[in-house]
């Protein structure tokens, strides 16, 4: 039976860490210097083993393990990354129609000395935050705010960076009443039409329409252990086999990893994560992503507004695989 959560799956790591912590306490209390240095040697040995174990674990992540890691709570979220890579960020709120959706945030920022607009899905870490952010599931007003901010960036001639991290768009009754489908489609249409460079990055969960609603950049990046899927694997298993517990099988079949997305030509580049995943060294993970964003923007800089639009059209027009012949 496959693990259900990242915590469950990483349990051996946590146990080793706890063991090392206990040994360290013992060592600190140990008066005898010979015995203390023996303990310290043991601790060093366990730490080496732990590092090796984490390396091995993360170098062979299967699709389902990637799902668990992509959803891990300590993973850097959109605001963590913005804080790490931007020297200034002024969040702008509201869709000027109905309200403000805390599940999509964004605004003008200074990224490595360069003015840009940056926006993305925002998840929460504790119960209150998670509720406030609606688990990162955006409502129609979230996408309408995104449209407003992207078009403001367009008028200011500033590049747009979008960070994707959502399980799905909000499926509730109110979102349906306010036109969640129309909001997503309209956001895609608006983003395709921008006359400024656009870079999108899947940083955690790229959940279907909810993700692609702000994900149609000229360049699409994906963190090494992020996932991008047409449907949550559990939902896919529920529909196909009526067995939501077979999420691991569905994850394999859906080819939702960054490596598969690159092979299928759906993303431009995989951004490597630090050893043991982005959540082990969030600052390093953000720096690596920042490098990839900077390079992508530099690649797009020579393109004129018309060329940027034409590039986007050609890119998404070419998506798909089929045969045509008798």
């Amino acid at each position: 039976m496959a693990a259900k959560t990242w915590k469950e799956w990483e349990k051996p790591v946590l146990e080793l860490q706890e063991g090392i912590a206990k040994l360290s306490q013992l060592a600190a209390k140990e008066a005898d210097s010979v015995r203390r240095s023996a303990l310290e040697a043991k601790i060093a040995e366990y730490e080496r083993r732990l590092a090796n174990y984490i390396d091995t674990l993360y170098s062979r992540l299967g699709p389902w393990e990637k799902v668990l890691v992509a959803r891990a709570e300590p993973r850097p979220y959109t605001l963590d990354i913005i804080q790490a890579i931007c020297s200034e960020f002024i969040e702008l709120e509201g869709d000027r129609r109905f309200g403000n959706d805390p599940a999509i945030i964004g605004g003008p920022a200074v990224f490595r000395g360069r003015p840009i607009f940056i926006l993305g899905h925002q998840k929460g870490r504790n119960i209150q935050e998670r509720q406030y952010r609606n688990f990162g599931m955006a409502k129609p007003e979230g996408y309408r705010k995104a449209i407003r901010l992207m078009q403001l960036a367009d008028r200011c001639g500033l590049p747009v960076v979008t960070l994707l991290d959502t399980p799905a768009a909000d499926p509730g009754v109110e979102s349906e009443a306010r036109g969640i489908s129309e909001a997503i489609a309209d956001s895609i249409l608006a983003m395709l039409g921008l006359r400024v460079p656009t870079v999108s990055a899947v940083i955690g969960e790229g959940g279907s329409g909810g993700a692609i609603g702000i994900g149609v950049g000229n360049r699409v990046l994906m963190l090494e252990h992020a996932i991008y899927s047409v449907i949550p694997p559990e939902g896919c298993a529920a529909i196909l086999w009526r067995q939501p517990e077979r999420g691991d099988d569905a994850a394999a079949a859906l080819r939702l990893t960054a490596q598969s997305a690159l092979e299928l030509g759906l993303i431009d580049r995989i951004v490597p994560e630090p050893k043991g995943g982005a959540h082990r060294s969030p600052a390093e993970a953000a720096r690596l992503l920042g490098d990839a964003i900077e390079e992508s923007l530099a690649e797009l800089d020579p393109l004129s507004p018309d060329e940027l639009r034409a590039h986007r059209y050609a890119k998404y027009r070419a998506m798909g695989r089929f045969s045509e012949g008798v």
Partner: peptide
């Protein structure tokens, strides 16, 4: 979207919207 084509199906959203554009 057709689940059996995974992300390729999701990419039909922007592709068809490009046609609307």
């Amino acid at each position: 979207a057709r689940m059996q084509e995974g992300m390729l199906s999701l990419m039909q959203l922007p592709k068809t919207i490009a046609g609307v554009q």
